[in-house]
Amino acid sequence: MIVRLEVNGERRLVDLPPLTRLLDALRGPLGLTGTKEGCGEGECGSCTVLLDGDPVNACLVATAQCEGRSVTTVEGLGALDGRARETGGLSLLQAAFVTEGGAQCGICTPGMLIAAEALLRETVDGANRKPTDTEIREAVAGNICRCTGYQRIVDSIAQAAALRRRVSPADWVRENLPFAKAEGTRGLL
């Protein structure tokens, strides 16, 4: 079945069996391997993407159900920022995970970032306020991390929320991640 959808702001088309999981469409023909598979059963959140702005588990969504809809993956976070070149490809949220130690092996990180992005859009962008600690923990409650413990992830998200309104990602990255400008940080996440 031919399915037309928007992925990270670009119009894309895939021709796949209709019940192919969105996860497999992304990692296969769409070439976006940032989205990871952990459990395949909706439990771990490592496959989290935004579907029309809401976080969903891509392992539980049929590709055919995405016809005409918009999908955001971790690859889209920096790019959607519009200042990707200045920030070495990272959004402020991604960069905060680097400086605050929110990522170790990185398997859960794409899902954590997307779940956190949904929260920041709702609270910081939508209501012009910082999320509470409880809200941050609830937002990533469906995302399991084997490595970091959760405190650093929560700290990373809180840091990104505090900065999201106040500074441009470019300035913040220049100050906190001096290597980013020179080398680009794409390889880090």
Binding site: G42, L51, D54, V56, A115, E138, A141, G142, N143
Partner: peptide
């Protein structure tokens, strides 16, 4: 609804 799964499950 807030107690069903996590937000990813609630969205679907």
């Amino acid at each position: 609804s807030k107690d069903v799964g996590a937000v990813q499950i609630q969205a679907r």
